[in-house]
Computed example of a mutant assay.
Amino acid sequence: MSFNVSVLPSGRSFTAEADEPLLAAAIRQGIGLPYGCKDGACGSCKCKKLEGTVTHGTHQRKALSAEEEASGFILTCCGVAHSDVVLESRQVTDESAFPIKKMPVRVTSLTRASGDVMIVRLQLPASDVLKYHAGQYVEFLLRDGDRRAYSMANAPHMQLENPGLELHIRHMTGGKFTDHVFGAMKEKEILRIEGPYGSFFLREDSDKPMVLLASGTGFAPIKALIEQMQHKNITRPAVLYWGGRRPADLYMHDWMQSKVLEMPNLRYVPVISDALPEDNWTGRTGFVHQAVLQDLPDLSGYQVYACGAPVVVETARDEYSALAGLPAEEFFADAFTSEADKAGAV
Score class of each variant (00 low, 15 high):
residue 321 S to T: 13
residue 211 V to A: 08
residue 3 F to G: 00
residue 188 K to I: 00
residue 270 P to V: 04
residue 285 T to M: 12
residue 318 D to Y: 06
residue 236 R to E: 09
residue 213 L to R: 04
residue 141 L to W: 01
residue 47 C to G: 09
residue 78 C to T: 14
residue 90 R to G: 07
residue 123 Q to E: 15
residue 345 A to L: 09
residue 307 C to N: 08
residue 112 R to W: 04
residue 56 H to C: 05
residue 155 A to W: 03
residue 102 K to L: 13
residue 150 Y to N: 05
residue 253 H to S: 12
residue 190 I to A: 08
residue 196 P to H: 02
residue 23 L to Y: 12
residue 120 V to C: 13
residue 343 A to K: 14
residue 31 I to M: 13
residue 94 D to L: 14
residue 296 L to I: 13
residue 159 Q to I: 06
residue 8 L to W: 00
residue 309 A to H: 03
residue 13 S to F: 11
residue 240 L to Q: 03
residue 170 R to N: 01
residue 259 K to G: 00
residue 33 L to G: 10
residue 6 S to I: 10
residue 329 E to H: 14
residue 47 C to D: 06
residue 142 L to M: 14
residue 339 E to F: 08
residue 144 D to H: 08
residue 8 L to M: 12
residue 225 L to H: 06
residue 152 M to S: 06
residue 45 C to R: 05
residue 50 L to G: 05
residue 60 Q to V: 00
residue 118 M to T: 05
residue 31 I to S: 07
residue 208 K to M: 06
residue 1 M to S: 11
residue 209 P to S: 10
residue 70 A to S: 08
residue 333 A to L: 05
residue 312 V to P: 05
residue 3 F to K: 01
residue 193 I to N: 00
residue 105 V to I: 15
residue 325 G to W: 02
residue 17 E to W: 13
residue 237 P to Y: 05
residue 288 V to M: 04
residue 52 G to A: 11
residue 212 L to H: 03
residue 88 E to Y: 05
residue 343 A to I: 08
residue 255 W to H: 14
residue 90 R to L: 12
residue 112 R to H: 10
residue 324 A to Q: 10
residue 317 R to L: 02
residue 336 F to Y: 15
residue 314 E to L: 07
residue 177 F to G: 01
